[in-house]
Design a protein around this nucleic acid. Sequence first.
DNA 1: CGATTATTGTCGCATTATGAGACATTAAAG
DNA 2: CTTTAATGTCTCATAATGCGACAATAATCG
Lengths: 233, 233
Amino acid sequence: MGFLKGVEYLDHLAYDSVIFGFAGDNLKILLMEYHDTALFALPGGFVQVDEDLNEAVSRGLAERTGIQNVYLEQFYTFGDAKRNLTGEMNKILNANNLGDDSLKWILNRFVSVAYLALINYKNVNPRPDEISDSCTWYDVNNLPPLIQDHSTIVEKALITLQSQLDHKLPIYELLEEQFTMAELQRVYEVILNESLHRGSFQRKMLSLGILKRHEKQFNGGANKAPYLYSFLK
Amino acid sequence: MGFLKGVEYLDHLAYDSVIFGFAGDNLKILLMEYHDTALFALPGGFVQVDEDLNEAVSRGLAERTGIQNVYLEQFYTFGDAKRNLTGEMNKILNANNLGDDSLKWILNRFVSVAYLALINYKNVNPRPDEISDSCTWYDVNNLPPLIQDHSTIVEKALITLQSQLDHKLPIYELLEEQFTMAELQRVYEVILNESLHRGSFQRKMLSLGILKRHEKQFNGGANKAPYLYSFLK
DNA sequence: CGATTATTGTCGCATTATGAGACATTAAAG
DNA sequence: CTTTAATGTCTCATAATGCGACAATAATCG
């Protein structure tokens, strides 16, 4: 077993989370940067000995972003034998003066369960943990180099997001409570990475019967004002 | 770490596989029954310390069915804290005179990665392992009670199968090299659990351009003989 | 104050996909 | 030769989708 600050964790098992947000017409994810290193990683963590796996992920997400009751979806478990943090983590531990033997277990091989979450960009209060000094949003199309196989994890998360977009993913988490049709279309376009026909998109969305129309929004532009919509609960 | 016959395994980590076959117009899965118990379980196993997770599953499947190069898809990782085999496994170990302490680790909490496979019913040579005396096909709609949460795992496998049927799953593994349109339709109907319109199904399949038409099959029936088809490679 | 501009809501049309029934074909049995 | 049952294909109605067009409208500009 591994111990971290007096808590016992399952050895060889971790989770990583790909946390999506939407801002400035682009899809973002949360990344951590470790103190005094140029190493970026997905926010992840370990599973306590008597803790549900899903609970562990919720807990970690709450600790890092301050938000709770998030839509979390498990999408793949990465289990290659050579998945370990030797090298990178040595650098991190040294930079943080944590080089004692009690943390050696962190250098073991880890099987990692990957989750994705869709959250509202504005609701987040990214908080660094003890060994990372920033937890910041990055444009998903312009990520820094990530440690280990974290780039692969992000890729797989994106593919999952795309394939499940029409089925069950609660896209509304990404937007404000109320939004325009153009904003909603932009979310779809960014996730699918393709442009959609405006008329068809609007017709399709309205035909689904999942949107409620509200007051028009006078946005100050020299044009017709759009309606605001929200998702029916 | 856990030891089994001199090999070292990752503790707290297991896999379970839902192996689908098709025979007699029905979808089947492989189940193991333990010696001298009435306990049925999905074929599963453990991951060696220096072994890729995917490798472990392939290895286990080859050991139990004799077939290799199977399409294996990971679909979920079950990680509830109370997932353990206390009770059931005690019964199994006692029935097999394996009640010594060296196997105590098997009673721990296990996080299990679940895989599904589609294989050709006829190619399989189910082989029991040391502690299970049968590894047999069961109709998926008529399963015996399964240990632990294995029924839940089967359910989730079925849902995954259904949702991915049109996208990427290599259904052809379930059939012979050549097959009739009626047989193919039956596979779809069994997986989707609904009947399909014959004309529409045939039109759809032919329009996909993934089938090659062969000689007619004179099946001895008092009716027009169907063509045989195979999937284009 | 009227013309202009950019964006929006909606419609029409062509094309494609889908559901359902119908009809001729055909291999074997009587 | 007739009958039977399954098959290949067709037609029609309906639904879904891609794409362009048009009127409406809020702000700006002359």
